[in-house]
Structure formats: C-alpha cells, structure tokens
C-alpha cells in the first residue's frame, strides 16, 4: 500500500476491529471473574479474580437441582435440533429439487410467514397448548420451533450447490428418492448440516419467551429459565448467578468452538 491515506484507513480499521473484539469478549471475562467473586464485589465493579469460586459453586449445586435443569435443557435442545434439521432439510431439499408452480408459490408464501413475529402467535399458541394439555411438557416446549422457516430457506439455498449429477447417477442406479436424500444428500451436505446444527441448537438452548410460558413447575425448567429466575430475585445473588451463567453458556460456547471450522467450511462450500 503506497497511498498514505489508505494506510491510515487500514490502521483505523484494524484499531476498530481490535476494540470491537475486546468489547465482544469482555463480558465473557466478566462472567468468569464474577463466578469467583461475591455479589457485592460484582455490583461494585471488581474486575479481578476473587476467592469465592468454591462457595458460589457449592451454593449453586445445593440450591438448584442441577442434573434436572441441565437434563431438561439438553433433552429439549438435542431432540429439538434433530427434529428441526430433519423437517427443514427435507423441506428445503423438496422445494429446490422438485420445482413446480404450486410449490414455488407455497415457498413464496413462506416469505410472508417469515415476517410474522412470534409475539403475534403467543396468544393463540398459549390457548391451543393449554387446551391440548401440552403445558408443562417437553413436546410443548419444542413443537412450535421445529418447522423453522429460516432453516427451510437456508437448506433450499444450500441445496442449489448440491450436484445434480449425483442425483441423476443415483436415479439411474435405481435408488429411491428417500434413499438419495438419506445416503447421498445428507453425507454430501454435512457442512451445511453442521452450520445449521450450531444455529438451531443454540436457539433452542437459549429459548426464553416460549418456554417461560409453557413451563409451570421447577422440575421442567431449563437452565435459561433457571438463570432468569435467579436474576429476577428481589436481591439477586450475583455470585450464584455468574456461576449459573458460566454453566448455561458453556455448552453453546463448546459447540461453537468444536464446530467453528465446519461452520466456516460450510460457508466457503457455497463458493466452490
């Protein structure tokens, strides 16, 4: 770069990126530090490690039924993710591979549905689910999220990069449509699935508003709900909250780091 103006611009861009990165990461540091401090230390801004980690952790595991709460979260998120990926990838594949006028129109209709905010569905869904006896059940928590329109769009878009020759060859070999999907499409598109998995898993792990409405007892609470109720206490115990927060965030952070390479691969995959 010979142009001095361009050099300054690039330095500024770098500085901005590093500041943004710092601001992005700081709350994570704050959370970990907070888990080692008392509630008073946290609200008075102590940003260095303290000595209360054991105390906070003990308090967490004695006041909260941790296996139950995390069990609920894992069950709802893993099962929810599998179902969502199955339903939405089938639909995305179906819309792209089997084009017809009617189905194209339906797909356009989905765009309209995509713009319906969940808030608008809360009232009727709440009434439907209470009448159907789905309140306070795992199915009740998972069901409304499975046919995620965003994911149908995502899979259809990515199916455009699925090589048609593979399908044609498989058809000549006498494979049935479902076999092509199961044995060829899924393995070929695994990066696409990995990226989708991250997003869907995190969405269900982190879900709040709908589970808040469906769940009525402590036994059915997910860790996200548990965290929210700890935080809304009249005098929130931040030491306890931070430990809960670390534990609640750990799974999604792990999924993210373990699959990040896949995630990027999946995105780059659409270039080739």
């Amino acid at each position: 770069m010979k142009n001095p103006l361009a050099l300054i611009g690039s330095l500024l861009a770098q500085a901005a990126l590093w500041i943004a990165a710092f601001i992005s990461v700081f709350p994570f540091y704050w959370m970990i530090v907070g888990a080692t401090n008392t509630a008073n230390d946290i609200t008075s801004g102590k940003a260095s490690f303290g000595t209360h980690l054991v105390e906070n952790t003990t308090k967490f595991f004695t006041t909260i039924d941790a296996p139950r709460v995390f069990g609920n979260s894992f069950l709802v998120s893993i099962l929810g993710t599998i179902l969502t990926l199955a339903v939405t990838s089938l639909a995305g594949y179906g819309f792209e591979i089997f084009r017809s006028r009617t189905r194209d129109q339906i797909f356009a209709g989905l765009l309209l549905l995509l713009s319906i905010p969940f808030a608008a569905l809360i009232v009727p869904l709440f009434m439907m689910f209470s009448r159907a006896g789905l309140m306070n059940t795992y199915a009740g928590i998972m069901l409304p999220g499975i046919a995620a329109i965003f994911m149908i769009f995502y899979f259809r878009q990515n199916t455009k990069s699925f090589p048609h020759e593979l399908r044609d060859a498989a058809l000549l070999d006498g494979l049935k449509e479902w076999q092509i999907f199961l044995y060829i499409y899924i393995p070929v598109m695994r990066s696409t699935y990995a990226a989708a998995m991250i997003i869907v898993f995190m969405t269900s792990w982190n879900a709040y508003l709908w589970p808040l409405m469906v769940v009525q007892t402590n036994e059915m609470k997910t860790i996200t709900l548990q965290l929210a109720s700890l935080a809304s206490a009249y005098t929130p115990d931040y030491g306890l909250i931070m430990i809960a927060n670390v534990l609640a965030t750990l799974p999604t952070v792990l999924v993210f780091f373990l699959l990040q390479r896949r995630f990027v691969e999946g995105m780059l995959g659409s270039v080739k």
Partner: peptide, 16 residues
C-alpha cells in the same frame, strides 16, 4: 471474537 457474543442466550448476556 466479534462473532462470539451470539452464542450467549439473550437471558445470559442480559444478566451480564
């Protein structure tokens, strides 16, 4: 680093 915030749940980061 810049992508990391979106792994947190809305509740978790709100508490932070």
């Amino acid at each position: 680093a810049i992508f990391l915030p979106c792994v947190t749940s809305l509740v978790a980061y709100s508490v932070l």
